[in-house]
Design a binder for these strands. Structure first.
Lengths: 179, 179
DNA sequence: CACGAAAGTTAGTGACCAATCACTAGCTGA
DNA sequence: TCAGCTAGTGATTGGTCACTAACTTTCGTG
C-alpha cells in the first residue's frame, strides 16, 4: 500500500483509539494493530505520537464540520433559525450515536489544556484553528447569528458531557436539554 | 500528622494534579510530592490510583456545588431567573479564573467514558451521583426551572471548552457566549 | 531481468510507573 | 518499661511505552 493511503488509514485508526483512550491512555501499539501494521512503522508516517494525535484531532473537526454542512445542504435557502437548529441538531445526534467524534472532541480539549501548560503553544494554535473553522461554519449556517450559534454550540457541549458521563437516555437529567 | 488529615490534603493534591494531567497523565509520584509524602504511603491512604481519582472527582463536584450555593445565598428570596443566572454565572467565572475545578470536571468526564468502556461501571455510577447532585442543586436555585437550568449548564459547558482550548479572552469566538 | 527505491519488519533500549514488601521512628496506655 | 499501634520510608519489581537502528521484502521501471 502507498504510504499516503497508509497514512490516511492511520489517522482514522488514531482517531478511534485516541477517542477511546485519550492521549496518554492510548499506546502507539494499539493504533498500529488497528491499522494492521507494525508499531515502529507508524514513526515513518509521523514524527512522533503527538503528531498522530494532532492529525486525528484535525480530522475530527473536519468530519464534524462536514456533517453539519451536509445536514444544511438539504435545507431550503430561506430556512429560519429554528429549522437550521433542528437539522444540525439531528446531524449531531447522528454523530453522537457513534460516540467517536464526540469523545475525540473532548480528548482534544483536555489535551490542548495540558499541552499549553507544558509550554507547547503550537498544539493549541493548531487545535484552535480547526475549532474556529468549525464554529465559523456553524455561524455561517445560522446566517451569522451569533446568539443562535452560541445556543447551538452550548447545548452541544452539554450533550457531549452527558454522553461522556453515560447517563441513561431516560435519566431525568436529560430534561434540562431535550424537551 | 493524623492519617485523616493527610488524606484530606492528599485529595486536594490529587485534585490539582489530575486536573492538570488527567488520569493517565498523572503519576502517583507527582501527587505524593505535592502532599509532601513518599509515594508508597499514598497506597496506605487509598487502595489504588483509581480511588485517588474518584475521591478528587467527588471533591471537585462538591466544591463546585458549594460555590453555587454560596453565590445564591446573597440573593433575595424572590430573585427572578435572570438574577440567579447572573449570580451563578459570576460565581462560575470565579471558579474558571483558577482553572483547576473546570479542568477536573472535564478530566472526570473523559475518564468516566473510558472507565465505562473498560467495563468499570462503578466509576461512572459514582461520578454521575456527584454530578446529578450538582445539577439538582442548580435546578433548585433556579426554583425547579428545567429550561433555565439547561441554559445555564449548557453555557457553562461551552465556557469550559473555550477555556480548555485556551482561547484568548478577546477572540471573536467568545461573542457566541458572552455579549 | 536487474536494480533502486519505497514499504515494512524484527530486535532492542532507556525511561517511567503502579503497586508491594520489609522495615523504622515515635507515640500511647497499662 | 515495654507491648502495640500509627505514620512513614527505601528498595524493588514486573510491566509498559515511545522511539531508534538495522535489516528485509516488494514493486515499478528502463
Amino acid at each position: 500500500m502507498k504510504a499516503e493511503d497508509r497514512r490516511k488509514s492511520a489517522v482514522a485508526a488514531a482517531l478511534t483509539e485516541f477517542a477511546r483512550g485519550g492521549y496518554e491512555g492510548t499506546s502507539t501499539e494499539a493504533i498500529a494493530q488497528r491499522v494492521g501494521v507494525s508499531q515502529p512503522y507508524l514513526f515513518r508516517l509521523f514524527p512522533n505520537k503527538r503528531a498522530m494525535f494532532l492529525a486525528a484531532a484535525l480530522r475530527c473537526a473536519e468530519l464534524t464540520r462536514d456533517a453539519f454542512v451536509a445536514a444544511a445542504k438539504d435545507l431550503p435557502p430561506d430556512a429560519d433559525v429554528e429549522a437550521v437548529k433542528e437539522a444540525l441538531g439531528a446531524a449531531y445526534l447522528e454523530l453522537i450515536g457513534d460516540g467517536e467524534l464526540v469523545m475525540m472532541q473532548m480528548q482534544m480539549q483536555v489535551a490542548t489544556y495540558q499541552a499549553t501548560l507544558a509550554g507547547d503553544l503550537e498544539f493549541g494554535e493548531t487545535v484552535r484553528r480547526g475549532w474556529t473553522d468549525l464554529v465559523d461554519t456553524v455561524r455561517l449556517l445560522f446566517s451569522g447569528d451569533d446568539e443562535a450559534t452560541g445556543e447551538f454550540m452550548s447545548e452541544g457541549m452539554l450533550i457531549n458531557v452527558l454522553t461522556a458521563l453515560n447517563y441513561p437516555s431516560d435519566d431525568r437529567i436529560w430534561r434540562c436539554v431535550v424537551q
